[in-house]
Amino acid sequence: MHAETVEMPPSARWPFTSLTPQVVPGVRRDVRRRITGWGYVADDTALVVTELLANVVRHANGRCVLTVGVEDGEILVACADTCPRRPRLREPDWESGTGRGMRLIAGASLAWGCEPLAGGKRVWVRLSAIPLPRLRVTAREDMARALRGEEPARVIDRCWFGCGRADVPGVLTGVASSDFGDAQMFACARCVGRLSRWIHEDVLRGDEEGLSAR
């Protein structure tokens, strides 16, 4: 007799004992990689995580536990910290550099709330889980040059293949077409070498091939 396997919703957890502003960008990138790896658009989630962690740095001495998961068609972000004070929506002060975080969260989310905890609170945010669009990739001579090491390197916003790293050296590999229009696709230097194992020889000759961005 075999036990039934139950597939659990994807989730991730980040505990911090001394979160600093310098750490937040790396956490945001990690969250973005997780969400896109689960197959969903990550922009709003990355924004929410940034604002929640900024509040932890400012009000909770950097101690918190951040969780992100997907359940019932929604992305749930929660941050438990050691500050008992509840967050609130404030009227924006355009002469101040702070005070807009919860308004940004409210605008990006389906709902948000706060629960008291022993020695602190838990702020939760629910967002729509928007699937990443399916792409049709047109492999151009750019990709052939990239695989041959002839495409000039540049600093790219994001690697479309493998790692999803941002602001790293990379090369142009092709164009992705979707319902949202066309977009240039870049691969970081680390992932270019892997592309040759994913792409058929016809692609290297410049023919069209249906691929999924990795």
Results as ranks from 00 to 15, higher is better:
Leu127Arg: 02
Ala12Glu: 04
Gly99His: 11
Glu209Thr: 11
Val56Tyr: 02
Asp157His: 09
Arg63Gln: 15
Leu204Trp: 09
Ala78His: 02
Asp30Ile: 01
Asp44Gln: 09
Met143Tyr: 05
Thr50Gly: 05
Gly164Glu: 05
Leu147Gly: 02
Trp14Met: 11
Val27Asp: 04
Asp202Thr: 00
Pro9Trp: 08
Ala42Asn: 03
Pro131Thr: 10
Leu110Phe: 06
Val125Lys: 03
Gln184Leu: 12
Ser128Gln: 13
Pro10Arg: 10
Met8Val: 13
Val171Phe: 02
Arg140Pro: 04
Val171Met: 09
Cys83His: 14
Cys159Gln: 04
Leu110Cys: 07
Leu53Ser: 01
Glu151His: 05
Gly39Phe: 09
Pro152Ala: 04
Thr50Gln: 08
Arg205Glu: 11
Leu204Phe: 12
Arg28Ile: 15
Thr173Met: 11
Gly97Asn: 12
Ala42Val: 07
Gly120Thr: 08
Trp112Lys: 03
Trp124Val: 03
Ala129Pro: 03
Cys163His: 08
Arg90Thr: 13
Arg126Gln: 10
Arg158Gln: 09
Ala139Tyr: 05
Ile35Lys: 01
Arg122Phe: 06
Ser11Val: 10
Cys163Pro: 02
Val70Ala: 09
Asp182Trp: 06
Arg29Lys: 12
Cys64Lys: 01
Ser11Ile: 05
Val192Glu: 04
Met8Lys: 12
Ala46Trp: 02
Val41Asn: 00
Pro116Met: 10
Asp207Lys: 15
Ser212Ala: 11
Glu4Ala: 09
Ser11Lys: 11
Asn55Ser: 13
Val65Phe: 03
Pro133Ile: 08
Trp198Arg: 15
Asn61His: 15
Gly120Pro: 08
Leu76Arg: 14
Asn61Trp: 10
Glu91Tyr: 14
Glu71Met: 06
Trp94Pro: 04
Cys79Asp: 14
Leu19Tyr: 03
Asp30Lys: 11
Asp207Leu: 14
Gly174Lys: 01
Val57Gln: 01
Gln184Phe: 07
Met1Arg: 13
Trp112Cys: 02
Trp198Thr: 15
Val203Cys: 07
Leu66Ala: 08
Gly97Asp: 13
Phe16Trp: 08
Glu4His: 11
Cys114Leu: 07
Met1Thr: 10
Ser18Cys: 12
Leu204Glu: 02
Arg148Lys: 10
Arg154Asn: 02
Arg100Trp: 15
Ala12Gly: 03
Gly62Phe: 04
Pro15Cys: 09
